[in-house]
């Protein structure tokens, strides 16, 4: 039996947590996509060497405490207003890498005006949009992106289009705006999807350096607590039900 100390050596290292990710224990439910996306953003920041130049804007929603997990300067915004904060930081510090990290309620419901106008102005920022079709933090209420017939705490009999309108497919609208240069829809349900999503996040951050305007990365995500499914079942449900409405892939890459 070899000693554990003989195994933990630099030459045996196959994986290391990025230093941009703090040691704080995440409050996210097991199986939630947030933790993976946080890690990808943190890895991209470390790999690009932009930790000192990055300002994150956290939303209201499950990721309100994102500032506890990425070791960068953060601003915590009011619900939906993150793109307005990011606008000011971008205008006052054009040399910085500014990103917002927003959920579907934050971005596609209460903050619709702010996201549309920030993207329309072509603010030189990255938007990470987590779409899990539900309000996770407040206990699983209907979101603007909740699917037709989907049961939530405020659509207990399933989303009724006549009553609540259609799921808002906002990323397609965003892609129409000339201020955006890169609009993509990703997921993190398989190792291959995680690698692809990381590439997309990396490209979005690189676009800031090239002053390309707004880069928008939607990540179709799971909320196994809100969906009341196991993490594995959530991934299956997402592929089966979310992907037909929120189709993965690039919508725009200029």
């Amino acid at each position: 039996m070899s000693d554990i100390k003989d195994i933990i050596k630099d030459e045996n290292l196959v994986y290391k947590k990025t230093k941009v990710l703090t040691d704080n224990v995440m409050h996210y439910c097991p199986g939630c996509s947030h933790g993976v996306v946080h890690k990808l953003v943190a890895e991209v920041i470390e790999e690009m060497g932009i930790q000192e130049k990055t300002i994150g804007i956290s939303p209201v929603g499950c990721s309100v405490l994102a500032y506890n997990y990425l070791d960068i300067d953060w601003q915590e915004a009011a619900h939906g207003r993150a793109p307005a904060l990011a606008t000011a930081v971008n205008r006052l510090h054009p040399e910085k890498y500014v990103f917002t990290y927003q959920g579907d309620g934050d971005l596609a419901s209460i903050g619709t005006a702010e996201i549309m106008h920030a993207c329309n102005r072509g603010e030189n920022i990255v938007v990470i949009f987590i779409n899990n079709a539900i309000y996770g933090m407040t206990g699983g209420q209907m979101a603007p992106t909740t699917l037709e017939g989907m049961k939530t705490a405020t659509s207990p009999y399933g989303r009724d289009i006549k009553l609540n309108g259609h799921p808002l497919i906002i990323t397609e609208l965003i892609a129409q705006l000339p201020g955006t240069s890169y609009v993509t829809r990703q997921a993190v349900h398989t190792p291959a999807a995680v690698r692809k999503c990381k590439k997309a996040i990396r490209k979005a951050f690189e676009n800031i350096g090239q002053k390309k305007g707004t880069s928008f990365v939607e990540v179709v995500s799971t909320c196994n607590s809100g969906w009341k499914l196991s993490p594995v079942k959530s991934n299956e449900w997402m592929v089966e039900n979310m992907f037909p409405v929120y189709k993965p892939g690039d919508l725009k890459d200029e």
Binding site: I57, A84, H117
Partner: peptide, 12 residues
């Protein structure tokens, strides 16, 4: 949006 831009700038 204007007051939240103020928040973003003030926080800088």
């Amino acid at each position: 949006a204007a007051i939240n831009m103020v928040y973003g700038g003030a926080a800088c």
